[in-house]
Design a protein around this nucleic acid. Structure first.
Length: 267
DNA sequence: GCCTTATGTTCAC
DNA sequence: TGAACCTAAGGCT
């Protein structure tokens, strides 16, 4: 389940597995079937990600994938068997294959459409070409809570609910702080922290945000692994004691998404 | 087995 | 603001 690091990891994986190779691109069923098969049999030139969007670039066009909440790529053994269940896209390369299920988007688009889509996205902490000042320009004149701004993909692309909760905790920022009250200095620190945290996510495939000195072992507690695979301070830990001050972590609904924070450390 | 929930986005009202 | 999208895992009975 995908925040930006997942998509960058997939881009890297697909580049390694299929890049430079002629591949079969099949759409066994579903609403995405038609357009994607137009690249069937062409060379996957490269794969790249911007925020939570993944792009497979072929000569005839670009396959744009957004995993949404449920989407998932799974590796399948060769030779591929008949797909079981709803497979939205299958890519078969010379020595490996993958099935895509449950995406929000899987469509063939033009380079111009890619450019238009990317123009609507904020800077991505995982991209070398990111300009964090573009995010700051929006944040510094917004009354919207910083917690909401961090999930707004027009402001910053790729951070999701886990990274939002965790980066705010790591910087002791109260989630309802209006963007305009954050301060440029603090923003810079948050941005650089996201760059490092998310790069770690690309390396490991998990979201780990707990500093070594706060790890359970260092604090004399039994080791712990959270449901999403990594280890975190507050995400989905409502009611549990804060790893630093033991205050129960609280949760609230912020525009339809669950927000978690420590009311003491993030006062 | 059934129910709830989820690391997300878009559209209708 | 709420529903729809549509999948898998976890918790419960």
């Amino acid at each position: 389940m995908p925040e930006g690091h997942t998509l960058h990891r997939l881009a890297r994986l697909h580049d390694a597995r299929f890049g430079g190779h002629r591949v079969r691109v099949l759409s066994p069923q579903g609403r995405f079937a038609a357009s994607v098969s137009e690249v069937d049999g062409s060379v996957l030139e490269r794969a790249e990600a911007h925020g939570k969007h993944l792009f497979h670039c072929y000569g005839p066009g670009i396959v744009h994938v957004h995993l949404g909440l449920y989407g998932k790529f799974t590796e399948i053994p060769l030779p591929p068997e008949q797909p079981r269940g709803q497979v939205r896209m299958r890519i078969v390369g010379p020595d490996c294959a993958t099935d895509l299920r449950g995406p929000t988007a899987c469509e063939l688009i033009t380079p111009e459409e890619v450019a238009a889509l990317r123009a609507r996205l904020g800077p991505d902490p995982l991209r070398a070409d990111a300009e964090p000042d573009r995010a700051w320009q929006r944040i510094e004149r917004s009354r919207t809570p910083i917690a909401a701004l961090l999930l707004d993909q027009k402001v910053i692309a790729g951070a999701g609910n886990v990274y939002r909760a965790e980066v705010l905790f790591r910087h002791g920022i109260a989630p309802y702080t209006p963007g305009r009250e954050l301060g440029a200095r603090r923003w810079k620190l948050v941005w650089h922290d996201l760059v490092e945290l998310m790069a770690g996510g690309v390396r490991t495939g998990r979201i780990d945000t707990v500093r070594p000195e706060h790890e359970p072992e260092a604090m004399g507690r039994p080791p712990r692994q959270d449901r999403h695979g990594g280890e975190v301070y507050v995400y989905r830990r409502a009611g549990a004691p804060c790893l630093i001050c033991a205050t129960p972590v609280v949760t609230a609904d912020l525009s339809g998404r669950n927000l978690y924070w420590c009311p003491t450390c993030q006062a």
